[in-house]
């Protein structure tokens, strides 16, 4: 023991007190092996003439595919908006003290979560077969406005309704989990201050529940982005449908599917970044100091670099 003390004193004291992590030669070997394998596979993939990279490049920004991508993003946005709003409403109903309301919510979730999405999409699409006209009026009384179901529910509306109403059932459970996670003391404190139930939910409970709700909702958005491809069944020309349309004519399946994957990956990556910042926004107050964002870190590094080189 005395020996180490003397050693610590003799050298640069601060430096010698810093512990040295153990060497892990196995890790380095494994990393090298994996890197080698990756390069090998990637090289084979890229240089494979049958991949037809020319075709990939040709179609990557083709107008039909861009239009499909636009439809996919629009569908994702509208269906998720409907799903989130519907989910909040269903969750609040489900937790209501009124047994009829909570039963109603339970039944909705049971029905929409329990039947295949594809069937629901087809159902909305073929609604006019069952209900030829939709009107607004007093039940069993006069009707004020009447419209042909086929005019009212276009392919796109059918797609949004099908995706959104199905999503609402899943979002309802996510929102309910978030609301339940907020401590009861929070509502009590808000009520003791004279806030109404609505104010308590909107100002106190939901903002805190969002911290729990956002990560699974991000999952749902990304899943929705890809699930929109199901609407090919009702002939809405979204990304995958338009790509299938192209390769059914030119038989270049693989390169066109690569194009599809490319755009799906771009979209999910952008969504991932959005989620990161949303989580930070609603994580306020939960940790003492938020770590810097990658962008802030990059800027700080650049500043340091400038300082170093100026010296």
């Amino acid at each position: 023991m005395t020996e180490t003390l003397i050693r610590a004193d003799s050298g640069d004291a601060a430096e010698s007190l810093r512990p040295i992590p153990p060497r892990r030669p196995g890790q380095r070997v494994a990393a090298l092996a994996v890197a080698f394998l990756l390069v090998f596979l990637l090289e084979g993939w890229i240089t494979n003439p049958r991949m037809q990279w020319g075709t990939v490049g040709e179609f990557l920004f083709s107008p039909v595919i861009m239009e499909g991508l636009r439809t996919t993003l629009l569908l994702t946005f509208l269906a998720m908006a409907l799903g989130i709003v519907g989910g909040v409403v269903l969750a609040v109903l489900r937790m209501s003290a009124n047994p009829i309301l909570s039963q109603l919510s339970w039944c909705y979730i049971w029905l929409f979560r329990g039947t295949p999405l594809l069937v629901q999409l087809l159902f909305w699409y073929f609604l006019s077969a069952v209900v030829p006209t939709i009107g607004l009026g007093i039940p069993w009384g006069p009707t004020f406005v009447r419209a042909d179901t086929n005019d009212l529910i276009t392919q796109l509306t059918a797609a949004v309704l099908g995706l959104g109403l199905h999503e609402a059932a899943y979002m309802a459970e996510i929102v309910r989990a978030g609301i339940t996670s907020v401590d009861d003391g929070q509502s009590e404190a808000a009520q003791a201050l004279g806030m109404s139930r609505g104010q308590t939910l909107r100002r106190i409970v939901l903002p805190q529940a969002l911290r729990i709700i956002i990560p699974p909702t991000g999952n749902q958005v990304i899943s929705m982005l890809k699930t929109t491809s199901l609407v090919f069944a009702i002939a809405v020309p979204e990304l995958l449908t338009s790509i299938q349309g192209i390769y059914s004519r030119n038989f270049q399946q693989v390169p066109l599917l690569v194009v599809a994957c490319f755009w799906y990956l771009v979209a999910t990556s952008v969504l991932g970044v959005g989620q990161y910042y949303l989580e930070r926004r609603f994580g306020r107050g939960t940790s003492r100091d938020l770590p810097p964002t990658p962008l802030q870190r990059l800027r700080a590094a650049a500043r340091n670099h400038v300082k170093e080189s100026a010296r």
Partner: peptide, 9 residues
């Protein structure tokens, strides 16, 4: 309240 119940956000 005993547990303060401040709004953490």
């Amino acid at each position: 309240f005993q547990r303060f119940n401040l709004f953490p956000h």
